[in-house]
Design a protein around this nucleic acid. Structure first.
Lengths: 232, 232
DNA sequence: ATCGATTTATTGACTAGTTAGTCTATAACG
DNA sequence: CGTTATAGACTAACTAGTCAATAAATCGAT
């Protein structure tokens, strides 16, 4: 705080300071609450994904969404709640995607290949969810921990996964000592890390890992690695 | 550290605002440039790892390092350069670690197991480098790209890796169609992702993945998966 | 239908608190 | 004595969040 020790009373209005109560409005403003909310969430996803929670600026989100910053506070209260809303929307999209997939319960090997390829494809299609997850892990799952959403999303996924492994073991096309959690983490890891760290890896290996041929090669490499592990 | 050992000039004691040019110093200040720099780097590593580049506060780094903020600017110029210095120090530590490891060139399978376990162990031992890499990838390798350090570090690592794979293929203990980059990324992925995302994963699977027994199990799971893939 | 009252979507202006970075002084050390 | 390691005070710009105004939509009663 600099000079003025006094609370400003009546300041001499040398500059054309707008008088409260006589504001100028830009003209007719369409009102569409749902669309505004959704535009805010979309912009917020982008900004949070690009700079993490700490690097995101609410002003920037407002700008990108094409709404005033106030509207964000009107709908979401504060930055943290906005972040949580973005996270939950992304997780719900993930759940929807996995629900929409057909599962080959009669053929465990084919089912497993499908799961692997779908996991890879989804991460490729939604890179922002990767950034969000990274941000969330940087904060040690601070926000995810306080919600049961992610568990409820993974429950059916893991149940299907369990049935496939069980059937495959019964049929002796899979080994019998599988830890399902470890295996699921590995399937995710092989896709996620490649994409999440593609920027540093591309520089190190002088390959643009995001190029379609490398993506295709990678996907089949993952399938091969996991399937070779599963063999009894 | 209360009383100044030096002759004070007349300070106007009623006005608590210090007059420029007649500052009060806390007392004798030890000078140790190297130690100060190193304390700054250590504190910066911690703060950058905890909140990412955007979430880190230079004031907080100064506080944690026990130096004035000015000293940081004196030695490192600005926040970005400090971040780059932290990154380079971490990469150098990684290189040193890998240089220090013995390699079993005569036994490719054992050499590969060693590489896998060492990779895992190093990530476990230095969680902050994982956060740094995540931050760097969030920024699309902005800083790493402008330095050749990381490539020069990975060059000998990949050369050793190549020799092992080549020898293993010759001896027919490894398959012959290995893409070394893909394989290296997979080995890293299986360790890195488990640790990097342990906070969300631990919550999803209701297991504390950081606990020693799970870490040990994970390491051997990775060894098993990679080795089964390598079999011809 | 229509008109006034109420609700609510939306914004401009503002503020208190931060934050990266600077200016200047000082003292330790060779 | 000159160099430099170190810190205190300061600032301009930024940033999350607030206040108060305004107008579009909605609803209830004519």
């Amino acid at each position: 705080m600099a000079a003025s020790p006094h609370p400003k009373k009546d300041l001499p209005q040398l500059a054309p300071r707008p008088v409260p109560g006589r504001r100028v409005r830009a003209g007719r403003v369409e009102r569409n609450a749902e669309q505004s909310k959704s535009r805010i969430l979309e912009a917020a996803l982008e900004i949070f994904a690009a700079g993490g929670f700490g690097g995101a600026r609410v002003d920037e989100i407002a700008l990108k969404a094409g709404v005033s910053k106030n509207l964000i506070y009107h709908y979401f209260g504060n930055k943290e709640s906005l972040y949580v809303a973005v996270l939950e929307k992304s997780l719900n999209a993930l759940a929807e995607y996995h629900d929409s997939l057909p599962v080959h319960f009669d053929d465990p090997e084919e089912a497993m290949r499908q799961i692997i390829r779908n996991t890879f494809d989804y991460f490729v299609a939604t890179p922002k969810i990767i950034s969000l997850m990274n941000t969330e892990n940087l904060l040690r799952a601070k926000y995810i921990k306080s919600s049961d959403l992610i568990r409820s999303i993974y429950k059916p996924i893991m149940e299907r996964f369990h049935r496939i492994i069980e059937f495959g073991s019964q049929k002796s096309v899979f080994r019998s000592d599988i830890d399902e959690v470890d295996l699921y983490i590995s399937i995710s890891a092989l896709s996620y890390f490649y994409l999440s760290n593609q920027w540093t890896l591309s520089h190190i290996f002088k390959r643009n890992l995001g190029d379609a041929p490398f993506l295709a090669q990678r996907k089949e490499h993952i399938v091969a690695m996991v399937m070779s592990y599963l063999k009894p």
